[in-house]
Design a binder for these strands. Structure first.
Lengths: 323, 323
DNA sequence: GGTTAACATCGAATCGTTTCGATCGAAACG
DNA sequence: CGTTTCGATCGAAACGATTCGATGTTAACC
């Protein structure tokens, strides 16, 4: 009544219920059996007092974990624009969520060093985020890296970029293509692996250039290249979005796809701006996310985790045809 | 050497440095002045022992805050597919980040009730997330709602959807349009406001239907409508993505935009799949994000925050013309 | 009927800081 | 020179739970 109402604690509830502090704690957490009648008495007392449950910060301190996993994604808006990122993040969030943990976005910029994270995922990892990595190692925070490269002390979840591109190359070679060009991503582990895979089949593939997974960027890149009327019969892109851009641009210039030019992508994401099925390498995105989350949870429990490399699958669509 | 190395605490550092625990704490936090020589002695001791800084969970408990702000976004992949969401999130993350706070994604599904959040943002708030809202109120967690509706106890950040649509309607009316149709979003506060605004100018506007902010969905919706060869001269969409879909579909059916049909959108986001500038209502997305983050920070400090309604701006592009 | 086992409850220790209030010496002031 | 002020340091009290080990109490078993 008079004066500031002090914060309610579990001790207050215990007193009101006529049980010990420890019993009240058990009534809430259920970590050890409590008789039904006592539990109800405690919960009733809590309801009467208006106690809204154990203080989570106190629990965190005692248990030595925060329940929060960070995910480094570089610049937010860039990272999420990649349609391949979303299904993965979705799966991660779902698995962690059902384990009672939350996913915290870590931009490049800011001082997340001050947040108590139970683990960190390096997903669309820019070079910039590596600095923070050392700090995590010092603080013994488990790290899981998605899409390589492998770091000391970090667990790895990856897909077999290389094999996928080999398959794709073989497919094109089988169709009779001999002169192919490629649109790549900016330098990164997946970029290097995919390129290497393609070059196992076509060592002399022409690199048109690198650009982000962005429709307009790929379109303009393809535009300047196609303007020179090159004699390639196929263009392999390192993402479906790029491939879509190339298809649109080719058509704009009067080239039939796949009649005059075959185009292939990577990822296996929806391409709503195309009316054909893209030939591409399909990543198991959701599974990648789940594997990542599983690795995180295991690492938090202190278990060792073997690196994971998931298989990919070539999907032959309508965007590739005989040379 | 022998045995498990116990966790290092600030007390160990203090002892090694020959100062009191409280002084050691101050040396790290800088919350009160400490002589230069003592600070260095403490930091040196910490470095020698391999102490990686004060335990953040303990600090959180003591200070009564976690440094984490939740953001409710419904299903992750859906929320982030909306290009209008990203610049806002980006701004939120940036402002919070520079205040040393982190942004935690809250999906519909899971038990984020167990995480100690300092505040929660309801952004792309589905009906589903409301249940959790009551819980937040009980626990006295500040809530900021973006894009309405206003809830008891929550701060509000919004843009003037209604006025924007009135302006847009006036623009079309000025061009001579009298029969217009509209593509709306699923029921939500912005949806209702935008519709109401349009109907201030065109009370009899035909509702084509509702769909998510998704190119393909809008395209198919527009397709079935345009197939009936309606006599409308303009279609107003509640998002730019929808508008882009309508433009593409109209052209596919041989209608010139804006010659035969004017099309307008809402948001002011890039539409890379169009070669024209969309007439639209431009939201100040980054500012919306900043305002949201500011409100969050103030509410955490216990300050009261006035609701914010940001102005929008009509951008006349090439997708609308005389009726 | 005596020995175990299982269960419910309790008291006390612990998690590792931050921060309040007091102390002490030195500098500033009139 | 006596008094105030200030800065640096310290000891002790929070912060609010979880959990270990101990203590009765009752049920089960041969």
């Amino acid at each position: 009544m008079s004066g500031q109402t002090r914060t309610l604690t579990l001790a207050d509830v215990a007193a009101a219920a006529g049980v010990s502090l420890s019993t009240a704690s058990l009534a809430f957490s259920g970590n050890k059996p409590v008789s039904e009648v006592t539990r109800e008495r405690v919960l009733a007392a809590a309801a009467t007092l208006g106690y809204s449950g154990p203080n989570l910060l106190a629990r965190n301190l005692r248990q030595g974990r925060s329940g929060v996993v960070g995910i480094a994604v570089g610049k937010l808006s860039t990272a999420f624009q990649d349609p391949a990122a979303l299904p993965m993040m979705d799966a991660v969030s779902q698995v962690l969520g059902s384990a009672g943990m939350g996913l915290l976005l870590m931009g490049d910029d800011d001082g997340h060093a001050r947040l108590p994270l139970d683990a960190v995922i390096y997903a669309v990892c820019g070079r910039d985020t590596w600095a923070a990595y050392d700090d995590l190692v010092v603080r013994d925070v488990p790290v899981v890296v998605v899409d390589g490269p492998s770091w000391a002390g970090a667990s790895l979840v990856d897909v077999d970029h290389r094999a996928g591109c080999v398959d794709l190359g073989a497919h094109l070679h089988g169709l009779g293509h001999r002169r192919v060009a490629t649109v790549t991503l900016e330098a990164s582990h997946p970029q290097r692996e995919r390129d290497a895979g393609l070059r196992e089949v076509f060592p002399d593939a022409v690199t048109i250039g690198a650009c982000p997974s962005d429709l307009a960027a790929a379109q303009s890149l393809a535009g300047t290249y196609l303007a020179e009327r090159p004699d390639v019969t196929a263009i392999v892109c390192q993402s479906d979005v790029q491939a879509a851009g190339v298809v649109l641009e080719a058509r704009r210039r009067g080239l039939a796809v796949p009649g005059d030019l075959s185009v292939a992508g990577f990822d296996g994401v929806p391409t709503p701006w195309l009316d054909l099925v893209l030939t591409t390498v399909v990543q198991p995105l959701a599974e990648k996310g789940r594997a990542t989350a599983d690795a995180v949870l295991k690492r938090i429990e202190g278990e060792d985790v073997a690196d994971v490399v998931l298989p990919v699958e070539l999907r032959v669509g309508d965007s590739t045809g005989p040379a």
